[in-house]
Nucleic acid binder design. Structure first.
Length: 823
RNA sequence: GCGAAAGUGGUGAAAUUGGCAUACACGCUAGACUUAGGAUCUAGUGGAGCAAUCCAUGGGGGUUCGAGUCCCCCCUUUCGCACCA
């Protein structure tokens, strides 16, 4: 009979749900396993194959662990705040709340068809006040500790859309994603979280978690630690000082000019009257470039002199001060000491503007008088550096720092590329920032007992560039919590990455009202043991949550200081070479395939396509392969209906007491058990399925020659092996075969019988001088002599040995015999 | 430019440690059963050659009895980061 997937998938999904098979008992934390996939943004585009590729295999892994005896918690929820819903509202007039609720309903329906073990009692959505209340609480805690603060900062601004854009909405060429006009930088007062305070701990923690090396490397690069010195340059005829950061204090004697970022606050003050016109033009010009444009290496460097001179603290020499947009205000001190002799960028700039190049590090193997034709950035001996002459540059770094510290002109300093996290958005559909601005008392936190600050439903969606909340008087006008006078709420909302930086805690007690989460549970159930999601979050979500988690640890609310013990990235499924996205119109939806083949076949196919962490371009070409495979298993079960009712399970068989067909199957089965254990644990689903296919083929061929007791043994184990990969199929076949109880209510895993893993004979590869000339079947553990004799007497091999002298034999037991002959 | 990953049949891909390259599938070819086949089953299927054999893991060197796997150089693709002083 054709495998009736429609009926049975519904039947088992209903059964699992009604019997609460996947409900987690938090009281039992023995062998607890928190298995998590990144929650979904409920967009109108709904679930596509990429989502399935994330959730299906992740669920198979969790199911495998459940069968092995782990107490698995696998929750799901919705990352429900965010820009797309609001943009949709601007276009269509549908309120973000309404569209989001509808999308969540739709997606939930789609999700249920996968047949996952989600414990829906953990379900949450970030847009509900009972969730975002705790975002606000978190904000206030950070505020209290000085880790949330407001400052003026440059942001992306589209003059045509009249709004702030997230970095992700600015295309690589510096234009607006929506209207293609140029995006400029504009200074606005914004809220930040001080993630930089945690930079060192964020680096340290990476050494203690089981994450892909590529992701750890990305985070390390993103944090971008570099050590060097901060050096003070006095300014001639001024009481101002210019501070620079450098990783090469050993090149201090080679400084020939200073570069400041055009937006540097000292620029106005230090610019002389003669230069002011040129400087003003330059500053204005660079404001129209995006950071992306400014920092693109293809652009030629440019700059102007501001007329001031700085004094080199080591030499007393005066050097000109320039502004140039290759200096970034956001890194280091925003000022650079330029050493054209030993820095490529400074060299390029000095060439263009005809500035002096001083050689202070001697490249090994070159002479002092050799002229530099390019910057030498390596190590060497210090020259032209006063009392430091002759010192190796690596040592010189330390010596110069010592000199700076003693003379008060600077100090050793560590710098990070990581910037503070800008969390305010001039948007409606997010968590309101719980701050009240009072003209008299200034910035006032909303008292905790007044949380949540609820997002009003009635609101005007117009892309005005201001938060829509600002034009909602009932929301905006409040009394100051301190003086009771009239005051205004902060009109901004939080970045949705705040929501996702602690949601895994909340899953354990989504309805908890006495705090962010029930620590009695999270103390035992957090951290997440397995986290599966895409690479695109390597430096965003995955860094933010590590930061927030460490903060929770500092508050005493988390027992560990890392949120995700083990991390795996599934590969990206592309379509026609491009990542699936609604705007590209290349989304592949799963429904047609589930309708045609069923959920298990589709899940199997996704896992069978290739290595899980690799992904690839979508094609449904091979799906019939997994369809046939499922049908063969179903046929086998039907042909042996009731078997397990009539024949009890035998734990193991003695190989010497079963017939050859049974023996072959027995060995195959137990080898398959071992392979599948290794493969699924390591998310190598494709080879696990291949192994199951092999086992199934062997069963189809040989099962009729087996005793009923033996059949019962193999079917019982085969069901358990396929259960994580095709859960509906396994339950149904179990029922057909007359198995006692359902699989997932009574999880069990069978260990491989080690005795069955050893073959009695092995196929030796016989090589002559490294070339394969034949194979011979030998009893296991044969000696070199025995194999050699057998090889010599085999005509296929002996003909290569005629009149040849064997000068060496290489023998690898149970594998290979290589006879090296004289050429 | 820097960093990471990858390159194996017509296609998706296997190959825990240096030890029989191409498992498992898709597709294709032939046959069987069929009114029929986009069903099922059986056999075959890296390339060249009648054959013995030879050649094949992006290209070129090397180490080794033996290299898809280790080392060096180069090419291509994908993804990150992109003047970070």
């Amino acid at each position: 009979m054709k495998y009736p997937f429609e009926e049975i998938e519904l039947k088992w999904q209903k059964y699992w749900e009604e019997n609460q098979v996947y409900k987690t008992d938090f009281k039992n934390d023995l062998r607890k396993l928190f298995s998590l996939v990144m929650f979904i943004y409920p967009s109108g585009a709904k679930l596509h194959c990429g989502h399935w590729y994330n959730y299906g295999p992740a669920d198979s892994w969790s199911r495998f662990r459940k069968l092995r005896g782990d107490n698995v918690f696998e929750p799901f929820g919705f990352d429900a705040f965010g820009l797309p819903a609001e943009n949709f509202a601007i276009k269509s007039g549908v309120h973000p709340y309404d569209s989001t609720m509808k999308n969540i309903e739709d997606i939930k329906g789609q999700l249920k068809r996968i047949g996952t073990m989600y414990d829906w009692s953990g379900e949450l959505m970030t847009c509900s006040p009972e969730y975002y209340k705790w975002n606000q609480w978190l904000f206030l805690k950070l505020y209290e500790k000085g880790l949330a603060y407001r400052k003026n900062a440059p942001v992306n601004w589209c003059e045509s859309c009249n709004t702030v854009l997230a970095n992700e909405q600015v295309l690589a060429d510096g234009t607006c994603e929506r209207c293609s006009s140029i995006v400029i930088q504009k200074n606005l007062t914004q809220w930040f979280f001080k993630i930089t305070e945690y930079a060192e701990r964020l680096l340290d923690g990476l050494d203690r978690i089981n994450w892909p090396e590529e992701t750890k490397t990305k985070q390390r690069n993103w944090i971008g630690k570099s050590t060097g010195a901060e050096i003070i340059f006095k300014v001639e005829n001024s009481d101002s000082e210019i501070k620079v950061f450098t990783t090469r204090p050993d090149t201090l004697f080679g400084v020939t000019y200073i570069v400041m970022a055009p937006e540097h606050p000292l620029v106005d003050k230090l610019t002389t009257a003669e230069c002011s016109q040129k400087v003003k033009e330059y500053v204005q010009n660079s404001a129209y470039l995006t950071e992306i444009e400014r920092t693109s290496q293809t652009k030629e460097k440019s700059g102007v002199e501001i007329g001031a001179f700085a004094i080199n603290p080591a030499t007393g020499e005066k050097v000109p001060v320039w502004i140039a947009d290759y200096a970034l205000l956001s890194y280091g001190t925003g000022c650079v000491m330029a050493v054209p002799g030993h820095d490529e960028r400074d060299f390029e700039f000095a060439q263009k503007y005809k500035m002096e190049v001083k050689k202070v590090i001697l490249q090994p193997g070159t002479g002092e008088s050799d002229v530099l034709t390019e910057a030498y950035t390596g190590e060497g001996t210090m020259i032209n550096s006063g009392k430091f002459n002759g010192i190796r540059s690596t040592q010189g770094i330390l010596e110069v720092i010592k000199f700076l510290e003693e003379s008060g002109f600077g100090k050793g300093k560590t710098n990070y590329k990581l910037r503070d996290w800008l969390i305010s958005r001039q948007r409606y559909w997010g968590t309101p920032i719980p701050i009240i601005h009072c003209e008299k008392c200034g910035e006032q936190p909303v008292p905790i007992e007044q949380l949540p600050v609820e997002l009003p439903y009635d609101i005007q969606f117009k892309p005005t560039g201001e938060s829509p909340l600002r034009s909602h008087p009932e929301f905006m006008n409040v009394k100051c919590p301190k003086c009771g006078g009239n005051a205004k709420r902060d009109p901004d909302t939080m970045d949705t990455f705040v929501d996702s930086s602690w949601y895994y805690f909340r899953y354990c007690s989504p309805k908890y009202a006495a705090g962010m989460f029930d620590e009695e549970i999270t103390d035992k159930w957090v951290p997440v043991d397995m986290y599966i999601g895409g690479r695109e979050h390597s430096t965003m979500h995955l860094l933010y949550s590590r930061f927030i988690h460490k903060f929770m640890f500092d508050l005493g609310m988390a027992k560990t200081d890392e949120p995700f013990k083990r991390l795996v990235h599934q590969g990206t499924i592309t379509n026609m070479g491009a990542k699936m996205s609604k705007s590209k119109g290349n989304i592949v939806i799963p429904e047609p395939f589930i309708d045609k083949y069923g959920s298990d076949v589709f899940r199997l196919y996704l896992m069978f396509m290739g290595p899980y962490e690799m992904g690839g371009d979508w094609s449904d070409k091979g799906i019939t392969g997994t369809e046939r495979f499922v049908q063969r298993i179903y046929d086998l079960a039907e042909a042996n209906a009731g078997l397990l009712k009539n024949y009890p399970d035998t734990e193991r068989f003695d190989i010497s007491h079963i017939n050859p067909e049974e023996k072959g199957l027995y060995t195959k089965l137990h080898k398959t058990i071992e392979k599948i254990e290794y493969d699924i644990e390591n998310l190598k689903f494709n080879t696990a399925i291949a192994a199951m296919m092999e086992l199934t083929s062997e069963m189809v061929k040989h099962i009729s020659g087996c005793s009923n007791e033996f059949k019962a043994h193999i079917f019982e184990r085969m069901l358990i092996l396929i259960a994580p990969l095709a859960p509906h199929l396994a339950e149904e076949c179990g029922e057909i075969l007359g198995r006692k109880g359902t699989i997932y209510e009574n999880p069990v895993w069978y260990e491989a019988d080690k005795n069955a893993l050893i073959d009695e004979t092995v196929n030796y590869a016989i090589q002559i001088s490294g070339k394969l000339r034949g194979t011979i079947l030998m009893p296991i553990e044969s000696t070199q002599e025995e194999v050699y004799e057998a090889a010599k007497s085999d005509p296929r091999i002996s003909k290569f040995l005629e009149e040849k002298e064997i000068i060496k034999q290489i023998f690898v037991k149970n594998k290979i015999l290589n006879l090296v002959v004289k050429p």
